[in-house]
């Protein structure tokens, strides 16, 4: 019924679900690193961008699909580790505000580097383009990528959840997110849990890069920049302190923007960012600690 009012067809709904799923993955990537480092990584989108360029080059060189995906993972993971080493580590003792501005700077830096190296026109990542074709499910056209994105996202979320719940390093990461100082005094190695979080977060960025290049094959230096801003808003909206609310926030904002973007006529959908961010601001005013968290937890000590 609501779908009827919004004038949404099944395809739009599927696409919105897929966008929500991809944003949820980005939210987990950002939330994991925030958990152990108390650092909001503004440059997360540039990891995705790097992965997308890897895919674009791989398809330009006519590499087989699996090799392109492998390259994407290799580049993104390497860049994540370098970022941790050169930026996060020296910043560990700084205030959250300084860290936020610093990762903002890194985001810009990486974007400018991409501009310098690859030019403003962009490259096409086409090897996974067939996923854009629709399949017909009980009379409704649904793009394959929408299904793939949702399935992959669910699998990734389950994998991350299992890793956090069942493994020793996962337990240590959760403990470090709650009280890093005490965890270290128990013998939990800081570099190991941070490295673990950074790597998982990087792997998720690579997955996101693959999903996004299917939807938007043209890879430009500002690839995923807007998505990151929206996801950050969603993550803060959901509540950064915990992974589940953060993920829900990411999903919610992706789903909402997919749905509104598909349902509104163009004259209105061009104002989609305004609608989205107005909603974000409104929610932040009502619940500054997040929509999906319990009342008294405070976000941080800035």
């Amino acid at each position: 019924m609501i779908l009827g009012i919004l004038n949404v067809d099944w395809q739009t709904l599927a696409d919105a679900l897929a966008l929500g799923a991809v944003y949820a993955l980005m939210a987990v990537g950002i939330g994991l690193v925030f958990g152990v480092l108390r650092l909001v990584n503004f440059a997360y989108g540039q990891l995705v961008m790097a992965g997308a360029y890897a895919l674009a080059f791989a398809s330009q060189w006519n590499w087989p699909r699996w090799a392109g995906i492998l390259l994407c993972f290799a580049i993104v993971l390497a860049l994540s580790l370098v970022m941790d080493r050169l930026v996060f580590r020296p910043l560990r003792t700084q205030s959250p505000a300084v860290m936020l501005v610093a990762t903002f700077a890194v985001a810009f830096l990486l974007q400018s580097v991409a501009l310098l190296w690859f030019g403003p026109l962009g490259k096409i990542a086409s090897s996974l383009a067939p996923l854009n074709r629709p399949v017909v499910i009980s009379g409704v056209d649904i793009r394959k990528i929408a299904i793939v994105a949702v399935v992959v996202a669910v699998l990734c979320l389950v994998a991350v959840q299992l890793l956090l719940a069942r493994t020793t390093v996962g337990l240590q990461m959760r403990a470090a997110a709650m009280d890093f100082r005490t965890a270290r005094m128990l013998g939990v190695r800081a570099n190991r849990v941070i490295g673990g979080a950074v790597l998982i977060s990087g792997a998720l960025a690579a997955v996101v890069a693959i999903m996004l290049t299917v939807q938007t094959p043209l890879v430009t230096p500002d690839f995923a920049l807007r998505d990151t801003i929206v996801v950050l808003a969603g993550v803060v909206l959901g509540g950064l302190n915990r992974l589940v609310p953060a993920t829900l926030g990411g999903f919610a904002i992706g789903f909402a923007s997919g749905l509104l973007g598909g349902a509104l006529p163009t004259t209105q959908s061009q104002y989609l960012p305004s609608i989205l961010f107005a909603a974000v601001i409104l929610v932040l005013l009502i619940r500054p600690n997040g929509l999906f968290t319990r009342g008294r937890e405070s976000l941080e000590r800035v």
Binding site: T168, M178, D179, A183, L186, G187, V188, R189
Partner: peptide, 26 residues
């Protein structure tokens, strides 16, 4: 090994998980 002031238990984890964290110091 330190038993910190105010105990510093990880309240959201289970008792067993808290113990397993102590194993990190082995």
């Amino acid at each position: 090994a330190l038993v910190p002031e105010g105990r510093r238990i990880f309240g959201e984890l289970s008792v067993e998980e808290n113990l397993r964290l102590g194993l990190a110091g082995r």
